[in-house]
């Protein structure tokens, strides 16, 4: 399974393509692609957003669903989704629970 991630052009914020069609600041509601067709659809949306100067560094990343929650497979992407592990007061992990959960 894969989700689509990028960094927002204006401020570099890590964002994920959500199932409501927006680029969300957390991956909680990311649009999950379960097959090649869905991956191609996400990639096309990413390419369009890149061409449209909304986001940069667009990537499809591997994830697992753990108890229904999206967990990126690679540590790198888990750190992107949370924030620096030595500064838990920074990044997404520092957001109030109702925003970040």
């Amino acid at each position: 399974m894969k989700i689509l991630t990028a960094n927002r052009l204006t401020d570099g914020e890590a964002v994920w393509f959500a199932n409501d069609g927006t680029w969300a600041e957390t991956l909680r509601n990311a649009d999950v692609a379960s097959d090649k067709e869905a991956e191609a659809r996400l990639q096309a949306l990413g390419d369009a957003a890149y061409a449209n100067n909304e986001v940069v560094d667009v990537n499809l990343i591997d994830i697992d669903l753990v108890c229904g929650e999206i967990v990126p497979s690679r540590l790198r992407e888990r750190i992107r989704a949370a924030g620096p592990t030595n500064r838990t007061d920074l990044g997404k992990q520092a957001l109030p629970v109702d925003q970040a959960a």
Partner: peptide, 22 residues
């Protein structure tokens, strides 16, 4: 200007893109 055009310009001015931000 596109990202491909901009990237070398921002790098000449010390601006990188990292995991969480620029």
């Amino acid at each position: 200007i596109t990202e491909d055009q901009f990237k070398p310009l921002r790098l000449m001015n010390g601006v990188y893109l990292q995991l969480h931000a620029y």
